[in-house]
């Protein structure tokens, strides 16, 4: 029989997400690296040093005020699960794609840890700029 204190502790552990804390600095590097995150192909954002930001998607400025971590994580992991017509890639999904080039086959664009880094960074983007 668990004591009530241990029961509460177990519950708290279960409720804690399995995701490690993301690192916002690493997340920023992913977002602004065109071969990695590819985000700025479509999005603009508060990155004055980055020339040539795309305009296919809303600005990332203020994303951390509009969305919480869970919503950002869901969007990044499977944007097309939220909206099948979205052009934003489902960064955490590797199956159900067709004709993927061999070098990328079976791999998601970003790992779970990288997605956590990006989420941590996006949460810092609270100003509307």
């Amino acid at each position: 029989m668990l004591s009530s204190a241990r029961w509460w502790l177990a519950l708290a552990l279960l409720a804690t997400p399995a995701w490690a804390e993301g690192d916002a600095a690493r997340g920023r590097a992913i977002v602004t690296t065109r071969q990695k995150g590819l985000c700025l192909l479509c999005h603009s954002g508060p990155f004055p040093e980055e020339r040539f930001q795309g305009n296919l998607a809303p600005s990332l400025a203020g994303a951390g005020r509009r969305w919480d971590a869970a919503a950002l994580r869901a969007r990044l992991t499977d944007s097309q699960g939220l909206n099948p017509d979205s052009i934003m890639p489902s960064y955490g999904v590797a199956n159900s794609l067709r004709d993927v080039a061999p070098a990328f086959r079976g791999k998601p664009i970003l790992t779970e840890a990288e997605i956590e880094d990006v989420v941590a960074f996006l949460l810092t983007l609270t100003a509307d700029e």
């Binding site: 590819l38 930001q53 296919l56 052009i87 489902s90 794609l97 993927v100 080039a101 990328f104 791999k107």
Partner: peptide, 22 residues
């Protein structure tokens, strides 16, 4: 198609005139 899962039409029909990066 592909890991980015985009069609020709999504860029060239639906988004012609917009900017993909530069």
């Amino acid at each position: 198609r592909g890991q980015l899962n985009l069609s020709c039409a999504q860029c060239h029909e639906e988004r012609a005139g917009l900017r993909l990066g530069s």
